[in-house]
Amino acid sequence: MLLYILKRLGLAALVALTVSAISFSLLFLAGDPAISIAGENASSEDIAAITERYGFDRPLPVQYADWLVSAAQGDLGRSWYFDLPTTQIIGDRLGVTMTLGLLAISFALILAIPMGVAAAVRPNSLIDRAALFISVVGQAIPSFWFGLILIVVFSIKLGLVPASGSDSWKHFILPTVVLGYYATPAIMRLTRAGMIEVLSADYIRTARAKGLNPRKVLFKHALRNAVIPVISLAAVQMGFMLGGSIVVESIFALHGAGFLAWESISRNDLPVMQALILVFSMFYILFTFLADVLNAWMDPRLRVG
């Protein structure tokens, strides 16, 4: 077990390393970073000075190795724009994004699991069709557009919730709906498909042959098995959502890490972008690991040998 976790951590580190290497080379290969800092109209002396100061004239692998050494010590560089440690800037913003992510995944699960189960229990019923409709629409609707429509209806026309900002819980309602709805179709489909498969399993027939009441068959025997893959999907989706928060946060001007990413891109603030890519990918890795642990916790076939 310990060996497995060590292996797993090693692999995770290798993935993170590769991601950082790819993003580093992508970011720093494009154009001259010195010009990005100094601005389009800077004099060649300024640019030379900046190049000198940041060491942009060194070969890329050397710069990367340099970045890596400090990253290993918890230093992900300094923002060119704010001239502050990127870790500090990102840390300030992560809370909002995490809150949004958790709210959104809860929203998705609360909507998707009951509907998926109901749809599976009565295929082709009204609720099945409703579930299908929600998932088909959810897959086809671009979240940024959905966000704008919600703003038009609920903020502008009805004046129920604020359209932008991140000061109160009310500001989180619309972003939660948009981001949560984005994750709903996949979870709902998996729940439905999983339930349909489980309901035709031999052990469900056994449970019915025992004369158990239908509710117990459904909730104790079927749902428990069907929900295992759903939980791990949700964890992975959570990882994706944090990365996807950039669109939602910029529509609602929610001051989280995603919004920071968008700002940094328009400011050409490469160290912050680089750090954000790394942070988001580490979150993804963390969530997939959690998904595995959850899976094993829920499925005795993985847990006890």
Binding site: D202, Y203, T206, A207, R224, N225, P300, R301
Partner: peptide
């Protein structure tokens, strides 16, 4: 092999 629920 499949007649019993794997989770209990």
């Amino acid at each position: 092999m499949s007649a019993l629920n794997p989770c209990y």
